[in-house]
Amino acid sequence: MDVDVLVVATVARALAFATPLLWAALGEVIAERSGVVNLGVEGMMALGAVTGFAVAFTTGDVWWGLAAAGLAGMAGSALHAFVAITLRADAYVSGLSLTMLGLGLSALIGRAWVGRPLPDPMRTVDVPWLRDLPLLGPMLFQGQYVLTYAALLAAVVAWALLFHTRGGLVLRSVGENPTAVDAAGLHVRPVRYAAVLIGGLLAGIGGGYLSLAYRPSWGEGMVNGLGWIALALAIFAMWHPLRVVLAGLLFGACFTLAFRLQTVFPPELLTMLPYAFTVLALVFTAWRRGRHAFGAPEALGRPYLRGER
């Protein structure tokens, strides 16, 4: 009885914590499946969080804020797409500069809103019917934000699109062997652009969740490494949308359980845990798959130039 309550509470808390990670990691899975690595997730989430908050604060409507958050993330990713795909510059450095620029810009834009709570933040809701399921209901379908349920749905949709449609096949092929896709008479770059833009949209929504729902406010340290953890999550899940959900829940559960140790450990050491756990998760992934990056898209991180192998 008591154990049930603990498990239910832990999973529910874990899901709330993992929601921004799920959005951002799903976006990164889609982008990386097309062969474009985007290290700008942290910056895109910060841009999404600050833009979402500013728009929601001004219009008084969180849904406009959410739309703006997604668009802001997308705008950031467009910059990366142009530099990494069209100009064929180093995708790693380009993503990194997007993170630095995004963090700097969001701090600059958000100065006016620091320390002001959102008057009308996003509210938690239950999912009709599913909420009454035994065990699963209280774990997954009660008292969460719409964005949390939507993240679970997005993972299923991403999985279906990636693995069970022709478009998904093309996207994955572009990430594995762009030369073959090109030889088959299809364009490589528009597909990569689309994947990166979708990735940016989802990262922006993840940022919006932070500033509109999870902690309805804005502060410079809001994203605080979650974007980088999402990048690690994409690797840990081996670029598979459904495994992203499982991995996200596992991450969330570990942090939630760790925070129950608050009486034993000083807060600074507990705050350290998500980052330490991320390193451990990457080590575990590497150990499980051996020395070769099994599961990674073959052409990941390589710009495509026709005629180059």
């Binding site: 290290l39 790693y92 605080n224 490494g225 980088w228 953890i229 990048l231 690690a232 690797i235 000083p266 600074e268 050491l269 705050t271 350290m272 980052y275 330490a276 991320t278 390193v279 990457l282 080590v283 992934t285 590497a286 150990w287 020395r291 070769h292 990056a293």
Partner: peptide, 29 residues
């Protein structure tokens, strides 16, 4: 970790930044 197991160094070095930050914060508190 990178040389022996092929662990992505971009993410691990970055995570180590946060770990160092909270380590310093813990020490001075």
């Amino acid at each position: 970790l990178k040389a022996r197991m092929g662990v992505n160094e971009i993410i691990t070095t970055l995570m180590f930044n946060y770990i160092a930050l909270y380590l310093v914060r813990w020490l001075i508190n």
